[in-house]
Design a protein around this nucleic acid. Structure first.
Lengths: 159, 159
DNA sequence: TTCTCGGCTGGGCATTCTGCTCAGTGACCG
DNA sequence: CGGTCACTGAGCAGAATGCCCAGCCGAGAA
């Protein structure tokens, strides 16, 4: 399941101009349409490319405040907490981690004041012992994948 | 820039089946093609929908390990640290935050052993005073936006 | 009330892309 | 040598896209 150099170019191209079709892609890459088609299909069935869902900006939806919360969970309450957090729309993602906290989640809110409401809702659940929150001020590096793809396309190492 | 109910349905539909075109979309939504087209255009120029870039799975690229690192920065070195971290492909995103740390970043690595290499590279920079890392074990809630979109589509509150 | 405007509808048009198929070529391998 | 695989180049019918237009309707302005 290693990433080919051509695969890398496909992903980078797709990331830069998502709207182009297979035909245009094959033209830019200098390969036959069938090849581009096959590569793309393979990347998708491989799971390398999960999909092409729309990237929605929470800020544009009226949720300009982002924060990360580290949670400590009462023993054995993990599943309940997960279920609880899933029901909160403002919880954008949730991870269980090693380290000082047991879980880490990304939150958004309409304002700093609203963040208080969100946090109350998040931690207002029996299984959560403690929570510490870090508010995001700037986002110097937005979620990106291209540098990693380029690196993966270079060296033959695989999984 | 509030999100209309129809807008909400468009985003949800697009998130579920990204491959459908405008025509198919208009059919499912029960509106004219021009309407779907116009709405979609508006959502994109509004910035609500940033784009349709491919969602790449780092694990499928050979980077199955994810971690979050909290960094403490030496006074006045912020810009240098940002520039440094930008050059590390394994740094998927970077935020500056309030709270105990000054920055928080998401890392990936080929293995736990490889994570050590990545961390060394990240913190092997003069401006970084201290780093604490939390390795992600599970991801009960992968990055999602739909619940938030649905909530935003409901209430008339806007930004 | 009447007017105007923006959003939506429904249709049409030429161009373009898609999904699918097929034959042919070169590389690698048992 | 024969088989498999990936790629090429081509073709075709069906479908979607970009673009245009006329008409309808409700909300707000005059």
């Amino acid at each position: 399941m290693a990433i080919d150099h051509l695969d890398g170019r496909i992903i980078v191209l797709l990331a830069r101009e998502p709207r182009i079709g297979v035909l245009e892609m094959s033209r830019r890459l200098g390969v036959a349409r069938g090849t581009a088609q096959a590569r793309l299909d393979r990347l998708q069935s491989n799971g390398v490319i999960r999909g092409f869902g729309p990237e929605v900006d929470p800020a544009a939806l009226g949720y300009p405040v982002t924060a990360f919360a580290t949670l400590q969970i009462r023993q054995g309450q993990g599943a309940d907490v997960r279920a609880h957090l899933t029901t909160v729309p403002e919880v954008l993602e949730l991870h269980t981690t090693t380290g000082t906290g047991d879980m880490m989640c990304r939150l958004v809110a309409r304002s700093n004041a609203d963040l208080q409401r969100v946090i109350d809702r998040v931690v207002g659940f029996d299984g959560i012992v403690r929570a510490s929150t870090a508010i995001v001020m700037e986002n110097p590096v937005p979620l990106r994948i291209i540098p990693l793809v380029e690196q993966a396309a270079e060296d033959p190492a695989s999984s």
